[in-house]
Every structure is written in structure tokens, then in C-alpha cells.
Amino acid sequence: MKDILPEVDAWRTAGSRVAIATVVKVEGSAPRPVGATMAVSSAGDLAGSVSGGCVETAVFEEAQEVLRTGQPKLIRYGITDEMAWDVGLACGGTIEVFVEPVTE
């Protein structure tokens, strides 16, 4: 989380709202460890990562929804039959990503 603080501060100073996504659980093999974070702004900026690129686009969309609703959200990503070719993790693991708005 420390690594994305400069971006979060800069975006907020510029007037954007910001959501932070954090890997809170990893099962099996996954590209980024627990604690990896990604920040997304209402202006469409993105910093950091929660996987090796496999689910960042999906998390970006979820983060936009979290910014609209103000409600934090826990999302599970992994290889399932219907997700294998969609937003599944290439490495075969499962991750849980918590997406929350940065609030006052």
C-alpha cells in the first residue's frame, strides 16, 4: 500500500475520488502476494497491481462501481470453467481482492 500512496495523494489533490484494491487472500499460486495493492481514480487513472496483469482490467471496472456506490466489495478471482478464458488467473491460483473507497 505504501508504494501507491504518492499517486493516491496526487489524484486526490487533483480532485479525483480514489478506490484502493488490496489482495487480502491467496490460495495456491498467484502472481502477487497478500498485501499487493492497486489504486484507481474516478478520472480513470491506475497505479500498482493485484496480479500479473490477469485481473487488473476487471478490478478497474469493479473499482469504478465502488466509487459510484461508496460500498466496499470483496471479489474472488480464480480459474473456474466459465472464467478460464475470461478473467481467470493464468497461474491457477485464487485470489480475493478487497476494493474500498478512500473516504473522508
Binding site: 487480502v24 460500498q71 466496499p72 470483496l74 480475493e96 478487497f98 474500498e100
Partner: peptide, 10 residues
């Protein structure tokens, strides 16, 4: 610490 499931999420 952050509640992520059950309870007062967030």
C-alpha cells in the same frame, strides 16, 4: 485491520 467479509464490512 479491515473487516472484509461478514460483520461491518469496511
Amino acid at each position: 485491520a479491515t473487516v472484509v467479509r461478514g460483520g461491518q464490512v469496511g
